[in-house]
Each structure stands twice: as C-alpha cells, then as structure tokens.
Design a protein around this nucleic acid. Structure first.
Lengths: 137, 137
DNA sequence: GTGATTGCAAATCTTTTGCACTAAA
DNA sequence: TTTAGTGCAAAAGATTTGCAATCAC
C-alpha cells in the first residue's frame, strides 16, 4: 500500500476531526494494530518510540476527542487511571489487577439473562461487566 | 441503647483493628446508617458535620484499612474518584454519571447465565456489573 | 512504656487548563 | 487569513507519604 495514512485519514474525516499530523500519528498507533487498551502515558510512550512528536497534553486531548467522536471507549477499572479501548463494539473485560492488563470478552461470551429496571426517568446507557482476576488458578 | 459504640466496636475488634476514636467515629458514620456509597471527601465532610475530628489523611487511611479488613468494598466507575461501599455482599450497581450516584442492585436481580473461562493460571475473583444510566427515559 | 495511629504538610500521580505559537483549510 | 490545534508549563484534584506528636493497651 502506498497510502499509510489512508485508513486513519478517512476515519478522522468521518469523525469530523481535522487530520493534523499529531492526530494522524496517534490514530495510526491506535487503530492500525488491532484491538488494544492504552492509557495516556502508554500512548505517549508509544508515540515517542514511533518518533511522532506529540505532547502529553495533546495525547490527553486527542484521546478524549476520539472518545467523544465514538472512535474509542473509556474503561475505568482502577482508581486514578483511565484505559482507552479501540474496540468500540459491545463487549466486556477481564481485568488483572496484578499486571494492570485488560482483556476483551466478546459480548457473546457473557449472557445477561436478566437486568433490573432502571430508576424511573432513567434509561440504561450501557452495561459493563468486569471480571476481576486474581492470583493463580 | 446505652452503648452507641457497641456495634462498631465489635466490628473493629472483629477485624483486628484497634478501636481508636477516629476509627470509631468513621465506622459509626459508615455502618450505622444502612448501606451507602461514599468517597473520601464525602466521608470527610460527614465527619466534620458530626463534629468528629478526623483528618483527611486518616479518612483515606481508614477507608483502605476497612477495605483490607473486608468491611468495605471499593467501587471504581469514574476516572479519578473512588467510591467505598458499605454493602459487602455480592451485588452490582447502577451508576448515574449525571449525578455521580451509585445505586445497589442485589445480585439476585442480575442473572449471569454464562461467563467466559479466565486465562489459564488465573481465577475469577469477582464479577462487577455496572449499569450506566443516561439522560432520561 | 511501647508500638500503633494520627495529623499535618509536602510530595506524587494523573489529568486539565491558559495562553502564545503553529498549522490546516 | 482565520480558526482549530498544539506545546509548554503551571494548576488542579485525588491520593499518598514522612515524620513528629499522641493515643491505646
């Protein structure tokens, strides 16, 4: 392929985000390598390794813009640190507190047979299932 | 009742925690009013209203000690803020991002018909279901 | 007394923000 | 050009930590 930015370019345009050098670089790191879970610091480190000059502030801004645009999902499993998930399909997670690792669980692998009725005036936006792992088997 | 501290005193002793003035005061605020969800700042504010002189640092330390001792459960639903839940039974939560409010869901109201197998060498510690609420019905 | 606990203030960590500068359209 | 986006450094917010003073046993 001769257009290394083609895919993410379309993605950004589709989301109505101006395709700046920084956003393109981060988008490539995020979306060109299959599903992944990154923290801001982690993505910042990735961008450094990739020689993309992006400031940490821009990493934060960009992660939130991508999230607002529906390109990413924020996953909160640990106090004081946010993960961003490039898998935006309906799905759930294993979380290993020992390693800080998140692993996707396809929603088809979790059967929620019944759910309670939300408080009146509210509706269910989303159901997040986090399966916390521990020690060893 | 003539022993306002009796119940929580036993609770602290049972957990192997020295019943100091501060721990007793916080334990009363936490456990003498039915199930509740508090943040550190919230409990700190409560302790002030109750004229219990407890520093914020001690509130944080105490919440974590209570958690270690199994008297509380930590619930993370929002980046940058931890909730502590006095309900330590197996259960789940509604979360309203608009108000920051957590509402217990008895585990009997959520049927998890199937769960995926954890990665080898790991076992399931706990399954947390968070039902995120949105706007209005 | 003696070791555990507390309070304070400083430190830490993640995330956000203000603002001058730069780049995209 | 004109407006959106970026980088830096400072600020903010939650939480933690070091250490001397205090308390429970």
């Amino acid at each position: 392929m001769d257009r290394p930015y083609g895919k993410v370019l379309d993605k950004l345009r589709g989301a109505g985000l101006r395709p700046t050098r920084q956003r393109l670089a981060l988008a490539r790191l995020l979306f060109d390598s299959g599903d992944q879970h990154v923290t801001a610091e982690h993505l910042y480190a990735l961008s450094k390794s990739a020689d993309a000059k992006v400031s940490l502030a821009t990493v934060y801004n960009t992660l939130h813009q991508f999230k607002e645009a529906g390109l990413l999902r924020e996953v909160v499993v640990e106090p004081g640190r946010s993960y961003f998930d490039t898998n935006i399909d309906n799905h759930h997670h294993f979380y290993d507190p020992q390693t800080g690792e998140l692993i996707d669980i396809p929603s088809s692998h979790v059967t929620l047979a019944s759910l309670p009725t939300p408080p009146s005036g509210k509706k269910v936006d989303r159901v997040d299932v986090v399966v916390r792992l521990s020690g060893s088997d």
